[in-house]
Simulated scan of single mutants.
Amino acid sequence: MTDIAIIGGGPAGLSAAINARIRNKTVLLVTNDYKDSYLAKAERVDNYLGLPGLGGQELMEQFRKHAESQGVEEVNKRVISVMPMGESFFLSYESEVAEAKTIILTTGVVPAGKLPGEGEFLGKGVSYCATCDGMLYRGRKVVVVGKSADAVEEANYLHEIGCQVTFVADKEGTRGLAEGVELVTAKRLEIRGDKAAEALIADGREIPADGIFILRQAISPQDIMQGIQVENGSIVTNKRMETSIPGVFAAGDCTGRPYQIAKAVGEGQVAALYAAEYIDKMKKEN
């Protein structure tokens, strides 16, 4: 079992990981490819203390090297859910699971707004993970809504296992789709069905489907962890970066404005220190 699982590998997540390791805690960092982050795409960063004028990707590489030097274990996958299990938590990331004593959410800003029908049919024909649920739809019609860098790869995987795949994107020119995967370009999307999802409506066109995979770069904290308190799209925390769920902490952009590197790094440190304190307290009580 890992001491601290950190979801998100931006400045807040890496800061939390480094400080957790300094406190001699084991760390599992689960994150998307950092090159797809907003920071990595920044041309120049001038307001981070002591390191002015670096490009966003260069700054991220410095952060990551520091974390690697502390022995931080990194897994490049998308977290689907976190479930409390008494005195620990189970993480599901694509087709794998892990157990941790505490959780630190550093998911950044997740674009707001679900598709109409998405929440209603989640788990009833709507999925966020093709690798996890793809085999359930073998030989059946599926739609992939591509909003992440790996969406084409996931669509091709579904095609390989025998699904009839339609790939829906909001722009033309999607590269790498396997032959036999239909590409539909549309911006206005809606999921319809009765007791389960039955079709995606794409700019007024109905695309019948047994399964609809919505592949975003990240999943909102409320969907990852049911019951966590959120206000205006941000996770509610106290000064110790504790959330409404005992043993779960949050840091960085996911806790609200200002969206600045210095804030994220500081909150990541605070979250790690109090997560370590939480673990030590649990040991004494047991």
Rank of each mutant, 00 (worst) to 15 (best):
C129L: 15
L158N: 05
G176S: 09
G204K: 13
Q217V: 00
A151P: 08
V145L: 15
A196N: 10
K141E: 12
R205G: 04
A178Q: 10
A178P: 02
D170N: 15
K187L: 10
A199Y: 08
I191Y: 01
E154Q: 11
A197N: 06
V152Q: 01
V181W: 04
V168D: 04
Q217N: 06
D203F: 14
I207L: 15
E179L: 11
D194P: 04
D203V: 09
V165A: 03
C163Y: 05
D150H: 02
A199I: 01
A155N: 07
L177D: 03
L215N: 05
Y157G: 01
K195G: 07
T166Q: 10
T174V: 15
E154W: 00
C163D: 09
A155T: 06
Y128F: 14
G204N: 10
R140A: 09
E160T: 08
V168E: 04
R138G: 12
D170C: 08
D150T: 06
L177Y: 09
L200Y: 08
A149W: 14
K187H: 15
L136A: 07
A186R: 13
G180V: 13
G125H: 00
C132E: 11
I207Q: 08
R188L: 08
N156E: 09
V144S: 03
R175W: 00
A209N: 02
V168G: 07
T174Y: 00
G123N: 05
K147E: 12
T174M: 15
R188I: 09
F213P: 00
T166W: 05
R138C: 13
R188P: 03
G176H: 11
R216P: 01
E153Q: 12
E154Y: 00
G176Y: 07
V142R: 08
Y157T: 02
Q217I: 00
T174C: 11
A197E: 02
E172G: 15
V144I: 06
I207A: 11
H159V: 01
I191C: 01
K147A: 12
D170I: 04
T185G: 08
I191A: 00
A155P: 05
A149C: 09
T166K: 14
Y137N: 05
V184C: 06
Q217G: 10
R188W: 01
G204P: 10
P208F: 02
A196L: 04
E172R: 14
C163R: 03
H159S: 10
I201V: 15
A196V: 12
P208C: 05
T166A: 14
P208A: 02
V144D: 00
G176F: 09
G211M: 04
D150M: 04
M135I: 08
E172F: 09
Y157V: 01
R192A: 11
K141P: 01
G173L: 02
A218P: 00
V152K: 00
A218C: 03
G125P: 03
T185M: 09
V165Q: 02
K195Y: 10
G162P: 15
I191P: 00
Y137L: 10
D210H: 12
D203N: 13
G180W: 14
A151K: 06
E154A: 01
E190S: 13
E153R: 13
A151E: 07
L200G: 03
Q217T: 07
E153Y: 07
F167N: 12
E153W: 04
E160K: 14
L189I: 13
K171H: 14
G173M: 05
T166E: 08
M135K: 01
R205H: 11
F213D: 01
